[in-house]
Amino acid sequence: MTSKISMTVNGRQVEGSVEGRTLLVEFLREHLGLTGTHVGCDTSQCGACVVHVDGKAVKSCTLLAAAADGGDVVTIEGLADGTRLHPMQTAFKENHGLQCGFCTPGMIMSAVDLVNRHKSNGGGKLTEEKIRAELEGNICRCTGYHNIVKAIEAGAKAM
């Protein structure tokens, strides 16, 4: 059985016809062609698939597209303002926060979410320890995390 769903993706109203079992990540990549969101593990561990739904970071490989019906979704493609990168994207670039880049969309979406949450919970200094703890659900096979953490520290200051 397929059903019609509609949602806002990166500010644009989109519609689609999906099976009950279609995952949000499949809808984004295969129906909408938004291949910036990656599938690393497909077992809810790695965070390469993180997008924002209604302002919160979620793993799009672990959410049905139909369950996100009516939602407001932001993917990595939705962060930049035209050709001007989002401050967190710039920070990853300047701090060499990526090597192969596979984990990067999820890292950046998680990083933006963590800074937003940190600010709305009163702000204060975002410590290295806190950033590392918050990256629990994002796995990188390349960098060793050091530059990712540095990038997030810089991105948080710029946001």
Binding site: G47, S110, L114, E136, G137
Partner: peptide, 9 residues
């Protein structure tokens, strides 16, 4: 519990 994305759902 888990990680931030898991806790959101």
């Amino acid at each position: 519990i888990g990680d931030p994305a898991v806790r959101h759902m």
